[in-house]
């Protein structure tokens, strides 16, 4: 008898829950609001100048614990858009099959080129569908809502003092062209996402970095722009410009790679 009453009481609890509004979200038709930092897929960003933000530095490939990123590094070449010399990734694939969404690749990117998306990938029919190729990654920037995190914002959040003090030695030393891309994805991501916690230091962070390369890089930028608008095939002027700048910027090998490549 006692058990019978207990059962009735337990059933009462069940009934009370039965009368509560359902909490289930019927996924394909209803999509629950995803938080800003939600991370389920990836995008590579085109920066505000219209060029690829990724400079092929392999930092993300090296840090990935699952080793799912594969990058084919391109030799340094002139940007079609700005004329500045910088690195590129010839090919970039990210295999979602084994990705653990740890966000480390996002955090280490020096140019904020890789970010995560808030919308998942459509399920595929074969394993190859889960491999994000370079085209898919660049398409994701337009197709999907991007999540909040970029390298700049994550580092800023973890170390607010970093912005001014460290940006110059840390980033300026390794690659001049890195800085060219350093501040542009921010505009995009910021616009898309409305950075909540710390927008203004995030913007100020790249400032010193940007100003550092200015003198060196602006020289080839102008000289390349001078032979007007023929940047599709300006072998001679660019080569000259590259050679001129090379000693100034302290990167002799960039001149070599450029001369090798452009003819």
């Amino acid at each position: 008898m006692g058990h019978f009453i207990d059962s009735i009481r337990a059933m009462g609890t069940t009934l009370r829950n039965f009368l509560r509004p359902p909490v289930t979200v019927e996924y394909p038709t209803v999509i629950r609001p995803r938080p800003e930092r939600h991370r389920v897929s990836f995008a590579l960003l085109i920066d505000e100048t219209g060029d690829e933000a990724c400079i092929g530095c392999l930092a993300c490939e090296r840090i990935c614990p699952s080793q799912v990123i594969a990058i084919k590094q391109a030799p340094k070449r002139e940007s079609k858009v700005t004329g500045k010399k910088r690195g590129y990734a010839d090919d970039f694939t990210l295999d979602l099959e084994a990705c653990i969404f740890c966000e480390l690749c996002v955090q280490v990117c020096p140019t904020d080129a890789i970010v995560m998306c808030r919308e998942p990938e459509v399920p595929g029919f074969c394993r190859e569908d889960l491999v994000l190729t370079m085209d898919k990654l660049y398409a994701n920037q337009k197709d999907k809502a991007l999540s909040w995190g970029t390298a700049g914002k994550l580092l800023e959040m973890q170390d607010p003092a970093r912005g001014k003090a460290e940006a110059k030695p840390a980033e300026g030393g390794e690659d001049k062209s890195a800085e060219a891309g350093a501040e542009k994805p921010k505009a995009k991501a910021g616009k898309a996402k409305a950075a909540k916690s710390a927008p203004e230091p995030a913007k100020s962070a790249p400032e010193p970095a940007k100003s550092a390369p200015e003198p060196a890089v602006s020289a080839p930028g102008q000289s390349a722009a001078l032979p007007p608008a023929t940047d599709a095939k300006p072998p001679a002027p660019v080569e000259v410009a590259a050679k001129e700048v090379a000693p100034a910027s302290g990167l002799p090998q960039t001149a070599e790679t450029t001369t090798k490549e452009i003819p």
């Binding site: 930092r37 939600h38 480390l104 909040w148 959040m157 973890q158 909540k196």
Partner: peptide
């Protein structure tokens, strides 16, 4: 957790010396 870290389960929100994600306002 998802609001803070972006992940529901495997957060990777701790790092050596502290946390990677700050809480939102």
């Amino acid at each position: 957790f998802e609001e803070v870290t972006g992940a529901r389960f495997h957060y990777n929100t701790h790092t050596i010396g502290g946390n990677r994600h700050d809480i939102t306002p």
